[in-house]
């Protein structure tokens, strides 16, 4: 099982779906961010799996995962500062309170 591509892809799909579920359900901004991390990780697993099973002579997948991790870090950095700023402004980190673009 650990040598078949499909199992890895199933794991990553499951992780992806769970991440989406969290993204759509949670109201806490930080919880949404956490779900987003799950999605990104599922993408990383996908890349590595395909790299190992379809193009083993290259390291492109791994290089890409490095980039994904780096960008995830940058994104979390900005997102967290925005969340902090928003929480200071509105005294709440409920995403349903941020609906100024209504209408």
């Amino acid at each position: 099982m650990s040598q078949s591509l499909q199992s890895y892809l199933v794991v990553s799909s499951a992780l992806f779906s769970i991440g989406i579920f969290g993204l759509l359900m949670r109201r806490n901004l930080v919880a949404i961010l956490i779900s987003l991390e799950l999605v990104l990780n599922s993408a990383s697993i996908n890349f590595l799996a395909f790299n190992k099973f379809c193009m083993p002579n290259k390291v492109t997948g791994q290089v890409f995962v490095i980039f994904i991790i780096a960008l995830a870090a940058a994104e979390v950095c900005i997102a967290l500062s925005l969340i902090l700023w928003l929480s200071r402004r509105k005294n709440s980190i409920n995403i349903e309170d941020a609906k100024e673009l209504k209408g």
């Binding site: 901004l29 791994q62 991790i69 870090a73």
Partner: peptide, 29 residues
């Protein structure tokens, strides 16, 4: 999947930095 380096990187960066930052944010909000 044969990416040992990346596994270490994952632990260091994701768990060691990003998740801690998230916890910081949780505490600070």
């Amino acid at each position: 999947l044969g990416a040992e380096f990346l596994a270490i990187m994952e632990v260091i960066i994701y768990i060691g930095a990003i998740s801690i930052a998230i916890i910081f944010a949780i505490m600070l909000s």
